[in-house]
Nucleic acid binder design. Structure first.
Lengths: 342, 342
DNA sequence: CGACGTGTTGACATCGATGTCAGACTTTGC
DNA sequence: GCAAAGTCTGACATCGATGTCAACACGTCG
């Protein structure tokens, strides 16, 4: 198939290649009349600029990198979907890179990628956004970065996030309003910024309501389904059970739910369960999980906006963060405390 | 940060840029002594060739495209993981593109991507691999393609697949060996090549065993969890129940399982359930699902091998297909027919 | 009326690699 | 011992766009 270059367009339109370039890139200083004419020719020839030539000459790559820890997860998939959509809007492309931290040369690998690809920007998903070595690497390459999810060491780059703490607090308050006073909490992965915030939100609400949470009601998980199972087993083993369990994410909540079912504990009759994330799994569970909806795809979109910087609506100073709104989704796994139990 | 170019390496090594280029690309006709020396300098300077310059001058892009229908799915995530790993091995990069078939300009979008990016190769996941318009587009651009999963209209490009039909047959035979003779089947999405093959495998096994499957035992699904729920409701509504249900994928099997639990039907005591894919969900279910393991990540790896063509072990003639092996994973959701029921 | 911005356009160099091709240097064969 | 063939190496053009800068066409202002 014949390749159409900018010269072909220029020749056909009777202008110089540079003028065509100006039109393509929406630069000013082109007479409206000529601009329209060139655009018409571009359409006629279905001309698309060669990304490599563009990248080489302008040292803008039109590539956005999405750096994730586990491309497996539904979380990563949500991000991708949002990011791809938005990249396409700005005629950029998305490159997914897995950060394999277990490898000794993991940093060198990222470094190599950055040198080769000259990314226009990068989105760091949790928990990659919390690894300061990575941040430094991007800084040294002068590549704009957006971090998703609250992170340890905030303010080092732009962020897009929800208010995890407030969300966890709201969920806890809702459980308390349903009459629960003996609530267990399953914490998330310690290295993950959001885990701490969710825990704080839970603690805030309990403190406000004058509820003291004994240590045995707090379980350490790592956001995996498996750790949810373990937490469930630990807390539902004997008859000393809480009336509600709030897990830091849906996968763990789902694990707890599975244990409850195995033990024949009615949910939400005898036990309310709440999660966080509005993961696909929360809708596949039975009963469906009450959870916090976090707009992941939307967050990725905003991140792309920030990086490409074409959207004045989300234009921010570097270092500032954008906060999107969450919502509490009340489904079937939570309900009022049974009479005589509280 | 200072950028290291091929000239810097050449100057430092006391050779011409072209010679460095030869070393980098593993071309022959370089004295072993010089080759080693250059490689040492490359390491010292941590030189990485600029992907854009390379792409421009050689018209090889070092980019592999992965075209998926739904980047949301766990299936897509598996593929990505495998593909990313393998791309990195060959110092290529992976670009994910979502094919949004609901948009009127979906083909033009792909076309635009191909013109801009000059992909070195493309992997078409199911069900994209079954859309002949897409195949034609790639052919017209002369871009090598590997199709994953059995497809309608086979032989038009290289394929990587498992023997879905044999796998479904094996699963069915296993159920029959457990004493089941009244087995329901939930079919997959009609547009998906694998759906038909899995159905055939099921039919094969039943025919061999002299079992006739009445029409009311065959449900039409679309591979979604929701359609699994619907199929479950349809088939478990009254007392005329089969002793086993084989769903074409795990999501649907999980849906069926949820319905069974809601109805208080013991699994596998009163009802065996089998799925297909070895999706993450099959391990999160309780009881865990018996299923067929399909090596998705491995399939994506092989696809990359085929495209880059550096791996003689999987070197094939164009049009030939590579078949990987599946395995039946027997978990907790299937068991022998209860006495007196069959 | 000429000096001076401002807006518009194109010529030409440039980005950093690789393809081509010619030339130097080795080996092989008779 | 010399031609032919093969092996190595580098000079230079090239890929297709954009950056720079000079030239030119205008109004406008003093």
């Amino acid at each position: 198939m014949k390749v159409v270059t900018i010269k072909d367009v220029a020749a056909r339109a009777g202008v110089s290649p540079k003028t065509v370039s100006r039109v393509i890139n929406g630069e000013q200083h082109v007479r409206a009349e000529i601009r329209e004419h060139v655009m018409r020719v571009v359409d006629e020839l279905a001309y698309k600029p060669n990304a490599f030539a563009r990248g080489l000459s302008s040292s803008r790559s039109f590539l956005i990198g999405l750096f994730v820890d586990d491309p497996f997860s539904g979380y990563a998939a949500d991000l991708q979907r949002g990011a791809i959509d938005q990249c396409r809007m700005y005629s950029h492309h998305l490159v997914i890179e897995a950060v394999e931290r277990e490898r000794p040369d993991w940093l060198a690998q990222i470094d190599a990628t950055l040198r080769e690809l000259r990314l226009s920007g990068a989105i760091l998903a949790a928990p990659v956004c919390d690894w300061s070595e990575v941040l430094e690497l991007f800084e040294s390459h002068d590549i704009p970065v957006v971090r998703l999810s609250p992170a340890t060491d905030p303010g080092r780059a732009q962020q897009v996030q929800i208010d995890d703490r407030a969300a966890a607090r709201e969920m806890t308050e809702r459980l308390i309003a349903l009459g629960h006073r003996d609530i267990a909490f399953v914490r998330g992965h310690t290295a993950h910024g959001a885990a701490a915030l969710r825990w704080q939100g839970f603690a805030d609400a309990c403190a406000d309501a004058g509820i003291t949470i004994p240590a045995r009601r707090v379980l350490q998980g790592d956001f995996s389904f498996k750790s949810g199972l373990a937490a469930g087993e630990a807390i539902l083993a004997d008859d000393d059970r809480p009336t509600a369990i709030f897990a830091s994410n849906d996968k763990m909540a789902f694990g707890v739910l599975m244990v409850a079912m195995r033990h024949g504990i009615a949910v939400p009759g005898a036990l309310s369960i709440a999660g966080f994330d509005d993961d696909e799994i929360s809708r596949m569970a039975w009963p469906q999980l009450t959870t916090i909806n976090q707009p992941n795809a939307e967050m990725a979109k905003v991140a792309v906006d920030l990086l490409i910087g074409n959207n004045p609506q989300v234009k921010k100073e570097p270092g500032e963060s954008v906060e999107l709104s969450y919502s509490l989704v009340e489904r079937e796994s939570s309900g009022p405390v049974m009479n005589g139990m509280a």
